[in-house]
Computed example of a mutant assay.
Amino acid sequence: MALGKNPDSDQSNRHFFGFSKRAHLPTYDLSDDYEQRFPEDPMGEETGQNARVWRTYLAESADFDAMMVGEARDGLDAMLVFAGLFSAVVTSFLVQTSQNLQADFTETTAYLLYELIAVQRAAADGNPVNDVSASPLNPTSTFVPNYPCRLD
């Protein structure tokens, strides 16, 4: 889209949540003929505060800013829709996976094997078998998920 053109010319009847999309933006004379829009400066005042170059710059930057804000607003709408869909998918995934959590049977087997070896060593050395500490895990113990990080 070229600078100086009205970005709403073909979308003037579009609404967003009941509001006209760019109704709050000021309207400018968007003609490209700056010689007619801004009269020539008197001799010696070409660099003053209200010179033609600054009025032209302000008109161009206002058009450019209006287009940038409009594009950012339209992009933000798409990003919010994407974020909503992403959070819905992740939430349903977490709900389904949290129901299927189960004990790590490899870890349980390793604990029980360690206890079995300790019992055999105690028996071989002539020590009482009751002095061997019991494994914290067994096939009938209740499973509590182990979270990798704490939010305390």
Rank of each mutant, 00 (worst) to 15 (best):
P26M: 05
E35V: 02
K5F: 13
R22Q: 14
F93D: 09
G126W: 00
L80F: 06
L85K: 11
F143T: 00
Q102S: 14
M68R: 10
A88W: 00
N146I: 07
S98V: 03
Q96P: 01
D152Y: 07
D125S: 09
T97H: 07
L58V: 04
D33Y: 01
V129T: 13
A103K: 12
F105D: 15
V129F: 04
L3C: 06
A124W: 02
D125M: 07
V129W: 03
A51K: 06
E115Y: 10
Y111Q: 10
V81Y: 03
L112P: 01
S133Q: 10
G84I: 01
V129I: 11
F17S: 12
Q49H: 09
E107H: 11
A59P: 00
M67T: 05
D74K: 07
L3D: 09
A23F: 08
M67G: 04
A62M: 03
F64H: 15
M1I: 12
V90K: 04
A59K: 07
V144E: 06
L137N: 05
N138F: 07
A66Y: 04
L76G: 09
W54I: 15
V144D: 02
L80P: 00
R121C: 01
D152T: 09
F105E: 14
S135H: 00
T108N: 04
G126F: 02
E71Y: 12
F64V: 12
L58C: 00
S135W: 00
V119I: 11
R14A: 13
S9R: 12
R37T: 06
A83I: 03
D125E: 14
K5E: 14
A62T: 03
T56E: 13
V53S: 11
H15E: 15
A2V: 11
Y114V: 11
W54N: 10
D33H: 00
D41N: 05
S31K: 06
V81H: 01
A83P: 00
N138R: 09
T109S: 14
M43L: 12
V53K: 11
D77V: 15
V132D: 02
D29N: 15
S12A: 13
T91W: 08
T106G: 15
R14G: 06
D32Q: 13
Y34T: 04
L112K: 11
D74L: 08
N100F: 11
Q11A: 15
L76D: 08
Y28Q: 14
D10P: 01
L76E: 11
F143W: 01
Y28G: 02
T97W: 06
L113Y: 05
A23S: 13
N6H: 06
P39I: 04
G4V: 04
Q11K: 12
A122L: 00
T97P: 00
I117Y: 07
S31T: 14
A72L: 14
L80A: 08
Y111N: 09
A88H: 02
V144K: 06
P148M: 03
Q99S: 12
